[in-house]
Design a protein around this nucleic acid. Sequence first.
DNA 1: GCAATTTTGTGATTTAATTGACAGACTTTT
DNA 2: AAAAGTCTGTCAATTAAATCACAAAATTGC
Lengths: 208, 208
Amino acid sequence: MTNGKISMTVIRRLPKYHRYLKDLLDKGINRISSKELSEIIGFTASQIRQDLNNFGGFGQQGYGYNVEDLFNEIGLILGLSRPYKTVIIGAGNLGQALANYDFEVHGFQLVGMYDVDENLIGRKIKGIEIKPSNRLVEDCVIHNVDIAYLCTNRESAQNVANALTKCGVRAIWNFTPVDLKISDESVIVEDVHLIDSLLTISYFLKDR
Amino acid sequence: MTNGKISMTVIRRLPKYHRYLKDLLDKGINRISSKELSEIIGFTASQIRQDLNNFGGFGQQGYGYNVEDLFNEIGLILGLSRPYKTVIIGAGNLGQALANYDFEVHGFQLVGMYDVDENLIGRKIKGIEIKPSNRLVEDCVIHNVDIAYLCTNRESAQNVANALTKCGVRAIWNFTPVDLKISDESVIVEDVHLIDSLLTISYFLKDR
DNA sequence: GCAATTTTGTGATTTAATTGACAGACTTTT
DNA sequence: AAAAGTCTGTCAATTAAATCACAAAATTGC
């Protein structure tokens, strides 16, 4: 177990391990070797062992890994040991879609939804009432919100991000096509740039 | 201009170049050096030059790059020179959100939406009527669909993917939390694993 | 039109990521 | 309880990606 800085490429593989281990657990499999896992998950066995060893020696020679233990360990590494409070800004279709995802089972607790559209304000999604955007800052402070799901239009994105930064939100899950400029280095921004993803498809499709 | 295989890391940067060049174009800027672009986009100047040179020498010494030309070139590289026909499978909030995105301006033309929910079937989103899922295969063949946006639940994902592969769809934009197994190597699968993205956030948040 | 400046394109170097290899620890079999 | 087999953890080697450095080509300023 090295304790240097873990690279982003490793971190981005962790959720996949977590998903596959959950599947194995659900199937009642309680033991797996890096070789078997490599065949299911599609990474090399060597990479799996190397990845896991960044965080600790979870396996045992001659045996492999205990699926439940490893699942729990990776859950801990991924920060799933405690709940996070989340808000959704922009309660259109995308915001509503995110509200309906079962992120709660992983500890992501939705505490507020916000929009500027009078037709949406007052509606309830999963028991959460959509409130006007001018309530956002106040509510974030009161509830100590950890993560904001940013689903506004392009035009509002940066302004909302600025407001979120000021009221102590510690991460922004950014679904807008904007690359946000955040002054506070400690605020985490995770982009889901759908158009970038779609253009990657068209790159590969173009001469087929 | 090398014509070996372009690495995935380079390809995934191309849409970002495209977005920033569009912004510059809209601002009326018609000339930019790799150094200036690096300050805006956050890659090194060297990387920008190296990336672009995978596809051709688009710049000029002492001048830099012509913004409009470069924007158009990258559009061509990304396959935006021709339209793609798309369908959405799963017309819930996420499917509807995707239908309402303006992917059309980039040439992604929505030709069908499908769902199994009787309450959704018959509704129209952006002029597209939601049809029952059993019409999917037939329609894909008739319309020669290029890309399917897969927004079903976890349980249906693999079955739908199998059907899509059989009816000639050439790419699947996968929003389900499933890693699809596709026998046809030529079918492109682009995953948008939201839960993986969210867990990356919690990784960084966990001990803050 | 000449000198100074800018800036690309590209080969060389450095850094990062992946894969290979194997000693040693543990398990299983007999 | 010994022998045979399994499989990790880790170091070494390889491959890939990013950065550096600079000659050559073009531009700009005088």
